[in-house]
């Protein structure tokens, strides 16, 4: 399958501090990949290098099969959408006028504005001046702007960090739809739930190194324990093993009508992350 991003032995140092160490990974066409890591782990640095906003110190980076220097060509910039912490909006203009400028820059029909505003749940506010918007609303406008031209490749640096659960869900649906229409998505987050909901694969970034990269399911099953938790009547909790003795025990509890809930002890992505790195995500 075609790789949209190929990174080999990428290194980045600021002054004498190493922010990325020998990072290698590929992103396949059509997938949604999430970089998960605590603050300062190098997520933004990775995105900035991939979008040619920062020079790499060492290593090879290819996007659309081309070395990163070629990305400055307008033909490539048209295929990329970017949302980072330095994506600013024109504060004195309305939401609509901000997006209208980008429609012309990317040669997109202005009809698309209403579509993206529906996706980010801002259609009612389109005439509002950006200055008067809340932080989460501004984040949704920048997100709308990044997907305006249905890019082949979309970079999102913590796209939902300032959003409430309802809007986050809205955005996730929008991103899934865009992905189904063919957009490859590279996003960073420290939200486990987000990674599990929309990412085909996740990479754990820790101190500038990728410690694991796989599908959320694989990560969880490979690290899963062999126990099952039972909640019995009178709020008693019991843990049994996944073996014959455990099965008999569960059988007896069910027969006696004791069981309230039953579930296998799957770790969350967060648990795995802590286990692998000894560090919490946020």
């Amino acid at each position: 399958m075609e790789n949209v991003i190929e990174v080999r032995d990428l290194e980045k140092s600021f002054q004498n501090q190493l922010a990325l160490k020998k990072v290698s990974f590929q992103v396949r066409k059509g997938e949604t990949i999430g970089f998960l890591g605590p603050s300062g782990s190098g997520k933004t640095t990775t995105i900035k290098i991939l979008t040619a906003q920062l020079h790499a110190t060492a290593g090879e980076v290819k996007v659309f099969g081309e070395p990163i220097a070629k990305l400055k060509d307008p033909i490539y910039m048209k295929r990329i959408g970017i949302l980072t912490d330095n994506s600013g909006l024109y504060e004195r203009l309305s939401i609509y006028d901000n997006l209208a400028l980008y429609c012309d820059l990317y040669e997109v029909d202005k009809k698309r504005i209403n579509e993206v505003l529906t996706t980010v749940n801002l259609i009612e506010e389109s005439k509002k001046i950006v200055q008067k918007l809340s932080k989460g609303m501004k984040q949704r406008v920048t997100l709308a702007r990044a997907m305006l031209h249905k890019p082949d490749l979309l970079f999102l640096d913590e796209p939902t960090s300032a959003l409430d659960p309802v809007n986050t869900m809205h955005i996730h649906q929008g991103l899934k739809k865009l992905n189904e229409e063919g957009t490859t998505i590279f996003l960073t987050t420290h939200d486990m739930q987000e990674a599990e909901t929309i990412c085909d694969r996740v990479a754990f970034l820790h101190n500038g190194e990728i410690s694991l990269i796989d599908t959320p399911e694989n990560i969880k099953t490979q690290q899963s324990t062999s126990s099952i938790s039972l909640l019995l009547r009178n709020n008693r909790k019991v843990v049994v093993q996944k073996d014959e003795a455990g099965a008999k025990e569960i059988y007896n509890y069910i027969k006696d009508g004791e069981i309230v809930t039953i579930h296998s002890d799957e770790p969350t992505l967060g648990d795995v992350f802590v286990k692998l790195t000894g560090r919490k995500l946020s």
Partner: peptide, 14 residues
Amino acid sequence: EKNTLRGLLLSPAS
């Protein structure tokens, strides 16, 4: 100052 120049720079505009 408002980080809008970056958006223009990263757009297809020459």
